[in-house]
Structure formats: C-alpha cells, structure tokens
C-alpha cells in the first residue's frame, strides 16, 4: 500500500492546487462581505482590516425579506426541474429506443434550439407570454426555462438510454410489457445518474437566472433571489459588502443543497452502474 500512497502525493498536490483556485473567489466574496465598504476595493487582503462587519448580514437579512424571495426561488426552480425531468426523459427515451418516422429530424430540431440566441429573443418572448397571459407569473418563468433546457436534457437522456443494452428493451417487449411500462419500470430507475446530472445543471441555471425574471416579472412579491439581491444595489455607489453578503445568502442554500444532493447523486451513480 505504501508505494501506491506515495505515488498519489503528486495527484493530491495537483488536485489541491486546483481546489484552491476553485475556492479563492468564494473566500474573496466572504471576505468582502465582512469588510468595511471602503475597504473592499482598496485592499486585497482576504480578511477585513480591523472590525469584522457581521452586522452587514443582519442588515441584509432584514432589508431583504429573504424567506419570501427564497420561497419564490424554490417554487420556480423546483417546478422547472420537475418539468424538465418529466418531459425530457419521455422524449429522450423515444429518441433513443423507438423507431418512428421523422425522429432524427425532430431530435436535431430540438438540438438546434440550443443555439437560439437567448438575448435577442427576449422581446419576442415577452410578446408571446403577453398573448398567452403568462406575464408576471412564475409559470411564465418556468415554461421558457423548461423549453430552453430541451437540447441539453434530450441530448443527455438520449445518449444515456442508448448506453443501456438494447437486449433489456427487446426482452421486456417479448414479455409483452408496454412501452410506457418499460420506460418507467426499467429505464428511469437506471437513468438516475443522468437525472441527477440534469437536475444539478438546471438547478443552477434556474436559481441564478437574472435577465429572464427581470424582464418577465413586474410585481416585487414574485421576485426571485437574484432580483432581490439587485434590490440591494441601491444608493449613489455600489456597496460591495452588502452586495456580496446578499449574494452569499443566495449561494448558501445552493451549496447546502449540493452537499445533500451529492449523496443521492453517488447512490444514483452506483445503482446505474449495476446492470445485472
């Protein structure tokens, strides 16, 4: 064991350096949130000089009505992810396993949506939602987000279903199982790693989404967290400490959620690997 442990030292060294690079900006944020506002941009020490301004967090918490916006963000993110997983496991399975005329064209069509210039379609999207009566609703945020994730999700699910041996499908079919039953009894349980990956990726996109809610929401009580953080950006000049404290409060639930989700993520990965 010893020689192999020694051989792993450079491995750990490289990973630690990379880890430090990943961690540094977050530490910078934490430092900035605790500093005196004047101190943030003038000194590049990670730690505050002198007083640690924990009071900034109290101010931000009180000003922000954090819990309310938190619930809004949870609402939007949860239903977005649910929608994505329901819609695109179904479609991804169809593209991976079923033969039907035009399936390739349809798949490529969905894939092509990935490259739709998101910024330019903002005003047309506003008009679409207006005619559907979806403006200023959370559903009006969820639907375009689900739709927007179609290419990534379909691509991943289709590829993933394809790696599952086709014999499984053939056997089940010969046993007389319906296609939907095959999908939900056999394929979905095997696709948990893919579902976990899609969930993680879209969780972030939805949680941090800024421009979409900014354009589509009018009422402040519907705002999601990033918009709430922007409400902190008041006054004659930017208060870095307040902004960073607000950003961190927004990020902490995400980090916690990640920490919790990782366990299931690993379980999903291992169960996906056992193919017997």
């Amino acid at each position: 064991m010893k020689p192999s442990a020694i051989r792993k030292i450079p491995l750990y060294a490289v990973l630690t350096v990379w880890g430090a690079l990943c961690l540094y900006p977050l530490l910078w944020m934490i430092g900035a949130s605790l500093k005196d506002p004047m101190d943030v941009m003038s000194s590049y020490s990670l730690l505050p000089n002198g007083v640690w301004h924990w009071d900034t967090y109290v101010d931000v918490w009180n000003k922000m009505k954090f819990f309310h916006y938190f619930l809004n963000s949870v609402n939007v993110t949860f239903f977005t992810i649910l929608g994505i997983n329901v819609l695109f496991t179904m479609a991804g399975f169809a593209f991976a396993k079923l033969r039907f005329p035009g399936s390739n064209m349809l798949f490529l069509g969905f894939l092509g949506m990935m490259f739709v210039p998101g910024i330019t379609v903002m005003v047309p999207l506003y008009l679409t939602e207006h005619s559907l009566g979806l403006l200023n609703t959370h559903l009006g945020l969820i639907l375009p987000m689900v739709n927007g994730s179609a290419p990534m999700a379909l691509f991943l699910f289709r590829n993933y279903f394809r790696t599952i041996p086709h014999e499984l499908y053939e056997t089940a079919k010969l046993e007389g199982a319906g296609i939907l039953r095959i999908l939900y009894r056999i394929y979905i349980p095997l696709a948990i790693p893919a579902i976990a990956t899609i969930t993680i990726m879209n969780f972030l996109g939805s949680w941090n989404s800024l421009v979409l809610p900014m354009v589509l929401l009018n009422s402040q009580h519907l705002y999601t967290l990033p918009l709430a953080v922007m409400l902190l950006d008041t006054g004659v000049f930017r208060q870095w400490n307040v902004l960073m404290a607000g950003s961190l409060i927004t990020i902490v639930p995400v980090i916690l959620c990640f920490f919790l989700l990782q366990k299931y993520f690993i379980q999903g990965l291992t169960s996906g690997a056992i193919k017997s």
Partner: peptide
C-alpha cells in the same frame, strides 16, 4: 430494487398539470 410506485405517464401528466395550476395560482397576490 424496483420501486413500488407506479410511475405511470398519466400520473406524470396529472402531476405536471397540477404543478402548472399551482404555479399559476401564485400570482393573484
């Protein structure tokens, strides 16, 4: 380890609709 839940697509759709309606209802504040 097959789950006992019947993940029928019909239920999925019902759930989706319910979700949509809930989300819709959120804005009558």
């Amino acid at each position: 380890m097959r789950g006992k839940h019947k993940w029928s697509p019909v239920w999925m759709l019902v759930l989706t609709m319910a979700v949509i309606l809930t989300a819709c209802g959120g804005n009558n504040g």
